[in-house]
């Protein structure tokens, strides 16, 4: 069995304060999980603010270096990547989807520049001609239900939150990555557009065989879309397993409290 991602007893400690008032904060404590290469899946990491779920995502993306433990991506230690070429090769395989689509694009710049830059920087072979790049960008946009014609030349404020988030996902798809790390990708998207994004994640898993780490505080969408789930609290994983089994019948007191706090709009 080969693993795409192997998170092995990972911890992260932040140091706060100055020389005299030094204080250590343990944001992530001894977290392990892995993603199987043969079985693409959506893994939800659920927790409240301060649970360490975003720190975990940053470590998987190589933006933060773990204090303890290792993160192996396709067998190589993520923290050991130093060279520019190595970083680039890693980014071609692991891409992020950010929380707030309105913040994820520079408001002073056209949205398509990120798409073209990604295609020009990561797609090797097949020529880097203008036509080849545009073709690649358009293919990624079609994958998320948009077209290049809709996005070309647009500024972020001219697109809706849903369109922007789908553009961001399309950009992440251009290098044909194996893993997407999505940190609260729908929390800032309007209700009428939210399920389009969530459904898109399911479609990408099924169609492209993409593994997705879905970081969220929303148990209902995690239940709806994910295969496996990790419930985190204060940096630790308190419960894990098949998403529906865990949420249908949570065991840990914190998971139970979390599930009970979900507001259920049921009137029979």
């Amino acid at each position: 069995m080969s693993l795409i991602l192997d998170v092995d007893h990972v911890g992260k400690t932040f140091v706060q304060g100055g020389l005299l008032s030094r204080r250590e904060v343990e944001a992530v404590r001894d977290v392990s999980f892995s993603l199987d290469a043969e079985r693409p899946e959506i893994l939800s990491v659920v927790g409240e603010s301060g649970s360490g779920k975003s720190t975990l995502a940053a470590m998987v993306l190589g933006r933060l270096v773990p204090t303890r433990g290792r993160i192996l991506f396709e067998g190589g230690d993520v923290a050991a990547i130093r060279s520019r070429a190595g970083r680039r090769a890693f980014m071609a395989r692991v891409q992020p989807v950010l929380q707030n689509p309105f913040e994820a694009f520079n408001p002073l710049k056209r949205v398509d520049r990120y798409l073209f830059a990604t295609a020009a920087n990561f797609v090797v072979g097949g020529g880097r001609t203008r036509a080849a790049i545009e073709e690649r960008v358009d293919r990624a946009l079609v994958e998320v239900g948009l077209t290049l014609a809709e996005v070309r030349g647009r500024f972020p404020h001219e697109l809706s939150g849903g369109q922007l988030q789908r553009t961001a996902i399309a950009r992440a798809l251009i290098p044909e990555p194996r893993l997407l790390v999505a940190d609260e990708p729908v929390s800032m998207v309007d209700a009428s557009l939210r399920m389009a994004i969530v459904n898109l994640f399911g479609a990408l898993r099924d169609r492209l065989g993409l593994s997705i780490i879905y970081i969220t505080h929303d148990l209902a969408t995690a239940y709806y879309i994910s295969d496996r789930i990790l419930i985190m609290r204060k940096g630790e994983v308190v419960e894990r397993g098949a998403a529906r089994a865990v949420l249908d019948n949570p065991q840990h007191p914190y998971s139970i409290a979390l599930k009970q706090a979900v507001l259920t709009p049921d009137f029979g």
């Binding site: 009428s192 209902a220 239940y223």
Partner: peptide
């Protein structure tokens, strides 16, 4: 519009497919 808002709410224990509205606000 209201029908869509209500129908698209995901619920724990319910895995039926939730549709989303086309277009944008």
């Amino acid at each position: 519009y209201t029908q869509h808002l209500v129908a698209s709410l995901p619920r724990i224990g319910d895995t039926t497919r939730r549709a989303s509205l086309p277009g944008r606000p």
